[in-house]
């Protein structure tokens, strides 16, 4: 901060100009997509202007009903899958994290190493046998293959995130609770979880965003249009009518981004902290 006072103003002005220009270039495609969703189709590929000459909101209704199933259904499916995934991840990952960070039992360190190891394994390796497994369980073309694994803590990354947080909580809390006759379940439920709301919220938000954006899972497991998530709906739109109706395509694309944008607006601090402290790749 002392540095700033010393800095001659022309230089800081230059930084601002560079940063503004860079962010404009970065965000221009997004703004253009939004503007295009408000233009008539004939106008979209005429200019790069951000201001529609003729305002046209019909792209939203055309897109909403553009496939044989309405986008409302896709939103509902995505929301359901995402919320169930958040629930599953929070329960299973916090249980695992509590065990490896606050409890003593033989084999604990081995378990933790195995968790870290699974972080490295690309999902392609388990893909084929998992698919065969779910096929034999008759789960393919339902939400189960996308949701049930989350209740088994397969996203080791979130175990890791919560473990780091739980380890930072003072040990005296557990000891005092044990003196008062609390077992591990009550310590977990009454002490650790309430104190870990920020970490749990971070895990919940990232799980939601990852699941909402997931394309590969739904692509291989969902085939009926009624079961499509918004990502599959968009892709279906692109393959069918979207080629000629880019206005509707962009309108739906904008809508699918809104939930993530909303989370960003409300929880920006948690998201950025989450990345800065855990080194998440998104």
């Amino acid at each position: 901060m002392i540095e700033r006072a010393r800095r001659p103003w022309p230089r800081s002005l230059a930084y601002h100009i560079v940063l503004c220009a860079a962010s404009l270039v970065m965000l221009y495609p997004l703004l253009w997509m939004f503007a295009s969703s408000l233009k008539p189709n004939a106008e979209i590929f005429e200019t790069f202007s951000l201001f529609p000459e003729h305002w046209d909101f019909s792209a939203y209704s055309r897109g909403w009903n553009g496939l044989q199933v309405s986008f409302g259904q896709f939103f509902w499916n995505s929301l359901l899958i995402s919320m169930l995934s958040v629930t599953g991840n929070l329960i299973s990952c916090s249980l695992a994290a509590y065990a490896v960070s606050r409890m003593r039992f033989p084999g604990r360190n081995i378990c933790f190493s195995l968790m870290l190891m699974t972080l490295m394994i690309p999902y392609q390796v388990t893909l084929v046998p998992q698919y065969i497994l779910f096929l034999n369980l008759d789960w393919v073309n339902s939400f189960l293959p996308l949701v049930v694994p989350k209740f088994m803590a397969v996203d080791a990354f979130f175990i890791f995130l919560l473990t780091q947080f739980f380890r930072g909580l003072p040990r005296e809390l557990d000891e005092a609770a044990v003196m008062d006759g609390c077992g591990p379940w009550r310590i977990y439920w009454k002490i650790i979880l309430p104190l870990s709301v920020p970490a749990l919220a971070t895990a919940a938000i990232f799980t939601f965003i990852f699941t909402w954006d997931d394309f590969f899972g739904p692509l291989i497991y969902l085939s009926d249009v009624e079961n499509f998530t918004v990502q599959l709906g968009l892709r279906g739109f692109l393959d069918s009518g979207g080629q000629s109706d880019w206005g509707a395509m962009f309108a739906m694309a904008v809508l699918t981004l809104l939930p993530v944008l909303a989370l960003f607006v409300f929880f920006q601090r948690l998201l950025i902290q989450g990345i800065a402290t855990t080194g998440m790749k998104r």
């Binding site: 249980l95 065990a99 803590a153």
Partner: peptide
């Protein structure tokens, strides 16, 4: 108890 917590994982 530790392994009960770890059961889902």
């Amino acid at each position: 108890a530790g392994y009960v917590f770890l059961l889902p994982w």
